[in-house]
């Protein structure tokens, strides 16, 4: 028991953080004037909250792996917009079927990730630099592809309407996240690949000496993250019924914040998917309650900053003790 507590100290801490913020949200939430119901706890509010945060949370699953290897991926926000635009174009202008359009969009995200991963693995340039470049480049590509115009799906015909009606459903968006979270949790804790991811982030040099397939692992984590960013793009496109080339600006920072709040160390080697799920919930609740209380977007940003610092300071104290 004791060793269980020790081993999972980060997780226990983040869960406690989640609990605190959940209770605080209930206490701070405005109530329905007539029925005296707590607005925050209304099923409709909770599910909507999860739906809105699903795209960032989904990308965060992949980002957790990237950060565990000691890397970072700054390109996910641009990739999200890119794939959203590809999906929208596929449905409206290229007349693809729903399935083909989605597949194309997700694969486009995978291609960005594959490129990131390959360049990092083969050129041995810092992930920060490579993905910074692709963040800029992919954004340009997206704007070029869309002529910097929003692509509306509402007016794009029956197929497009069926697409967004299906994928913007709460059960679909939340369900996909839950499913993917389970898959990634297993991937990280139960597979050879997951072990290699951690090992690489823990000690890259020793990973070479142990004969691990380092390049393959690196390429895989960035490709997975690209695929997830592609899926997030598809979902965002469906939810907003728009392919917006300027979507997802600074989303990479939200994603990284979720991962870090979930207890994954930016130094690599330490972290978990469960933590990331908790981190995503913490941010989701925070944004939601601030919205309910009509706190402006600018103040929201400042509060987010505080939460990130508090979370990381708590972790730091844990590791140095």
């Amino acid at each position: 028991m004791k060793s269980f507590v020790l081993r999972n100290r980060t997780l226990i801490q983040s869960s406690a953080g989640l609990l605190v913020i959940f209770v605080a949200a209930i206490l701070l939430s405005p109530t329905d004037l007539r029925t005296d119901e707590v607005l925050f706890l209304k099923a409709d509010n909770l599910t909507n909250m999860l739906r809105v945060s699903a795209p960032v949370a989904i990308i965060a699953l992949g980002m957790t792996l990237v950060i565990l290897t000691g890397g970072i991926d700054l390109s996910v926000g641009s990739t999200l917009a890119f794939c959203s635009v590809v999906a929208a174009l596929g449905l409206s202008e290229w007349n693809l079927g729903i399935f083909a359009a989605i597949l194309l969009a997700i694969l486009a995200g995978g291609a960005v990730g594959l490129l990131n991963g390959s360049l990092i693995a083969w050129l041995k340039v810092q992930p920060f630099v490579i993905t910074l470049a692709s963040m800029i480049g992919v954004r340009g590509l997206t704007r070029w592809l869309s002529n910097n115009q929003n692509i509306q799906l509402r007016t794009a015909g029956e197929v497009a309407v069926r697409f967004f009606e299906f994928f913007s459903q709460k059960t679909v968006m939340i369900g996909l996240f839950v499913l993917l979270a389970a898959v990634f949790a297993l991937l990280l804790s139960g597979t050879v690949f997951g072990r290699y991811v951690r090992a690489l982030g823990d000690n890259a040099k020793a990973s070479v000496y142990a004969g691990l397939p380092i390049k393959r692992v690196q390429i895989a984590v960035y490709t997975l993250t690209g695929l997830l960013a592609g899926l997030a793009g598809v979902l965002t496109c469906a939810r907003t019924t728009t392919g917006n080339p300027n979507d997802g600006i600074a989303a990479e920072l939200d994603v990284i914040a979720v991962v870090v709040i979930g207890g994954t160390s930016l130094a690599g080697g330490r972290g978990s998917i469960v933590g990331t799920v908790i981190g995503a919930l913490i941010i989701a609740i925070l944004v939601n309650i601030l919205g309910l209380r009509n706190v402006g977007a600018n103040e929201q940003l400042m509060l987010k900053a505080v939460i990130i610092v508090v979370a990381v300071v708590m972790q730091h104290q844990r590791t140095s003790s």
Binding site: R195, R198, A199, D202, N203, K205, A206, S207, G269, R270
Partner: peptide, 13 residues
């Protein structure tokens, strides 16, 4: 320390 072990991982891993 530098070429051998992953210090944050377990004996098993």
């Amino acid at each position: 320390k530098t070429e051998g072990l992953m210090m944050q991982m377990s004996v098993r891993d």
